[in-house]
């Protein structure tokens, strides 16, 4: 190739300059990317990472806001205390039962609703909009709404069941430990079902129609089609629903705070509620942080399982 002086071919100069600029662009891709990420990183580090570390540090201290003079390092004392504390163990138990009940109910309901909404029928569009309704309702309003539905004297549930002849006297739903817990589960489930329905519907929509045609050719019944086509394809979205809802249930707070306030006694005193009590009512920041850390560890375990399972299935896109 003959070397042509740049000055002789002005067009070449600009193209060379452009090349140069582009090369410098690619060279600094790394730098540029981190500059772009800087604001987000600062926020996440300062307001999530730092508090996580600080929380752990505080959980190793005796720290009551009302008695700052008692502030001192106590090591794992707080953890030892709460792990032998009856109130803590109870709230952990309540949370586990609450989560198990909620998640299984959510799975059953959302799968049913999603299968229903996946059929073609008149008014399906309206139904799909309707599904979003409970999702849009703030947890606090949800708790308030259900507290009135379950109200012993004037509640809708009593009124409805009584007029249908299903109960012979008004019941005090929120006063017995078992029914109060069930009421909390119900309220929580109502609020959370839509999210799962949407995920499952997206999963159902991704199943190729030919599979159903093939199953029909093979004379598979409805049940067999469900077992051999629908369910295997839904495993992934079901898994996501399972894990996200477990995490949701485990950290649930606002609905129960308003609905039962943890009562009667400590029957619905889930772990998040107990944490807030420890901090706001007893101003015990040391122990409160120990609580917070236990919740975080449990959530962490769930999310590790989540990410690993998704990775294994090779469906994790970044």
């Amino acid at each position: 190739m003959r070397i042509v002086p740049y000055a002789a071919r002005p067009g070449l100069v600009t193209s060379y300059l452009r090349q140069l600029r582009q090369r410098s662009l690619t060279l600094s891709d790394n730098l540029f990317a981190y500059v772009l990420n800087l604001p987000a990183l600062v926020v996440v580090l300062a307001l999530i990472a730092y508090p996580i570390g600080y929380s752990f540090w505080l959980s190793l201290h005796r720290y009551n806001l009302k008695r700052p003079d008692l502030y001192r390092f106590v090591g794992i004392e707080n953890y030892r205390e709460i792990l032998t504390d009856r109130v803590f163990l109870n709230s952990l138990k309540v949370s586990v039962i609450f989560s198990l009940l909620s998640v299984s109910l959510i799975l059953v309901l959302s799968l049913t609703f999603a299968l229903l909404l996946n059929e073609t029928f008149l008014g399906r569009g309206v139904m799909r909009s309707l599904v979003l309704l409970p999702w849009a309702i703030p947890g606090v309003v949800n708790g308030m709404m259900w507290s009135w539905i379950f109200n012993a004297k004037i509640g809708a549930l009593n009124g409805l069941l009584y007029s249908l002849g299903l109960i012979d006297a008004y019941r005090q739903w929120l006063s017995s430990p078992t029914s109060a817990l069930l009421a909390a589960v119900f309220a929580h489930v109502w609020n959370m079902v839509p999210f799962s329905v949407i995920i499952l519907l997206a999963g159902l929509a991704s199943i190729p129609g030919e599979l159903y045609d093939a199953a029909r050719v093979d004379r598979c019944g409805v049940f067999q089609r469900f077992m051999h086509v629908t369910l295997p394809w839904l495993m992934h979205p079901l898994l996501i629903v399972l894990i996200l809802q477990t995490m949701n249930a485990f950290r649930t707070f606002d609905t129960i705070y308003v609905l039962t306030g943890g009562g009667p006694g400590e029957a619905t005193n889930v772990i998040a509620l107990q944490t807030v009590r420890t901090v706001l009512d007893f101003t015990d920041f040391g122990q409160g942080n120990a609580y917070a850390y236990v919740i975080m560890l449990i959530t962490l375990i769930i999310s590790i399982v989540y990410v690993r399972l998704l990775y294994k299935r090779g469906s994790f896109e970044t």
Partner: peptide, 8 residues
């Protein structure tokens, strides 16, 4: 979870 970092 929010509850885990609310105190700090």
């Amino acid at each position: 979870p929010g509850i885990a970092i609310i105190i700090p």
